[in-house]
Nucleic acid binder design. Sequence first.
DNA 1: GCCAACGTTGGC
DNA 2: GCCAACGTTGGC
Length: 153
Amino acid sequence: MKSEPRTFSIDDLKAAPDGVESWDGIRNYQARNFMRDDMRQGDRVLFYHSSCPTPGVAGLAEVAREAHPDHTAWDPESDYFDPKASPENPRWFMVAIRFVEAFPHIVPLAELRRVSTLRNMKLLQRGQRLSIQPVTKKEYETICRIGRSAASR
DNA sequence: GCCAACGTTGGC
DNA sequence: GCCAACGTTGGC
């Protein structure tokens, strides 16, 4: 899951009550469908910092609550207001995630690109902008190993 | 700030 | 259903 750290970082997640935060504001159908159809309680999440000096994986979270209607969609005061959404027809969904760990050092995108076993990772494919993407177990484990190692920087 | 690559909108 | 125009994402 990608987030701009100026807006919401892994440290912000850690500081949230119980380390839990709702992932509201997703207004892309593919990302919505992925949250609604594929993300399950306890699933691990790579927390990615985007649009910042060193984009990369900052740490880990887990799904604390499965998909439920994103109420910001029918709040006219919200930046994420969608006039076509309503409590009866929510249109947009969100999950809640819980902080698990922050890596000692971010795993930079540039480093991910150098790891041959990650070459098929969706994040690294050309034109891939989706803010929520599936990750294979092997990719997840590889990135955890790099993130926890003293050699990462 | 630039720009490539997508996604969405809306006229026809 | 097509597709041009526009908006967004996100690395660099």
